[in-house]
């Protein structure tokens, strides 16, 4: 490995994002750190409002500022700190080196431009292709993401595509300039189950062909189990646990992760068994956390949890959890 280079395509440290709203501050991302290796697929899970989207949008500075403000931290990508580079550098990375796919394919495409135009846009902006070259590449991309009869469909408008097909178009846009990292924010949530499965297959397939690293945000632990290499669990704007996927499912070390896993309905489980939900409210984010954000809903909580916010302790090989309770000994941690 050359000097100064890291083994990571993306190395995020202590990222802090705050929204300044009329009703006060919202601390949506609190000291989030994580890394992404080349070609790795990192799953990000957590309930609604846990800060998954805001974290990823902060990385590429895609949040409206104001109200959003990145208060601190660093985002190392290809030798640059994305939290500090000027906006035009950031723009050259967005859509070129880092691609994004969003949740709702029905609204994510511009209704008044043809699909071809929208796929060609990043190609022309970042790669300086002329119209004919961009059109050829767009056809290639559409074929790559499994759109039949691509050349003819170039001139179609988004409303002439189904939801699944539009999501394929979004993926084609995100992959247009052959990015190092693809951030997929719940790309299958808005689709029905069979289409979901097709999109999942497509991503798996593309990952093999193109070798980009992927951050995959989802609510669906089943999806994560199927495709992720590593999983990061978020709660209250923090990373509460992080582990290789098998390890996390087999050996969860944070009470929130454990409860999350219990809420997953099991096909083999008894029919009468009710779906379990996690009781209680998500934490208020009006202040930077000074105590464990999960303690109000946590069965393991004890006095220390109310006075200190736990750091992420190493609990196994490349496995860490932000909890004072040690499930291995069944007692509080002595650190």
């Amino acid at each position: 490995m050359p000097d100064g280079a890291t083994p990571f395509v993306l190395d995020v440290k202590d990222l802090k994002t705050v929204f300044r709203t009329r009703g006060g501050e919202v601390h949506a991302v609190n000291d989030v750190s994580f890394t992404l290796k080349p070609g790795e697929l990192l799953g990000v899970v957590g309930e609604s409002g846990s800060g998954k989207s805001v974290t990823m949008m902060s990385l590429i500075r895609l949040l409206p500022m104001p109200p959003a403000e990145i208060r601190g931290g660093s985002v190392m990508f290809e030798g640059q700190d994305l939290a500090k580079v000027p906006e035009d550098t950031m723009r050259a990375i967005r859509g070129a080196r880092i691609g994004m796919v969003f949740q709702d394919p029905m609204t994510s495409l511009n209704p008044v431009f043809t699909v071809g135009y929208q796929i060609m846009e990043p190609l022309r902006t970042h790669m300086g292709l002329n119209k004919a070259q961009a059109a050829n590449r767009a056809v290639e991309l559409m074929e790559l993401v499994g759109i039949n009869d691509a050349r003819r469909r170039l001139d179609d408008y988004p409303h002439q595509f189904s939801g699944g097909m539009r999501q394929r178009v979004m993926i084609a846009i995100a992959l247009a300039c052959d990015p190092k990292v693809l951030i997929a924010d719940e790309p299958t949530t808005a689709l029905d189950v069979t289409i979901q499965a097709q999109i999942l297959e497509l991503i798996k397939d593309l990952r093999q062909k193109l070798g980009m690293a992927i951050v995959w945000i989802t609510h669906d632990l089943g999806v994560i189990a199927g495709i992720a290499d590593r999983v990061m669990v978020m709660y209250g704007g923090q990373v509460v646990e992080q582990a290789p996927v098998r390890e996390l499912f087999a050996n969860p070390q944070h009470p929130y992760t454990r409860m999350l896993l219990e809420t997953v309905p099991r096909i083999t489980g008894e029919r009468s068994e009710k779906l379990r939900v996690i009781e209680g409210q998500p934490p208020m984010l009006s202040k930077a956390p000074e105590s464990c954000p999960f303690r109000a809903r946590c069965p393991q909580a004890f006095d220390r949890c109310a006075s200190q916010n736990p750091a992420r302790f190493d609990v196994g090989p490349s496995h860490d959890a932000a909890c004072f309770w040690d499930f291995k000994t069944g007692a509080p941690r002595h650190v």
Binding site: R91, D104, T107, N110
Partner: peptide
């Protein structure tokens, strides 16, 4: 506030193109 505007920005288009075209 539409989603497609976020997509346009995520493509790395500059604000002029995002606002005056999209």
């Amino acid at each position: 506030n539409q989603d497609y505007v976020r997509t346009a920005r995520a493509k790395g288009l500059n604000e002029k193109v995002v606002v005056l075209v999209h």
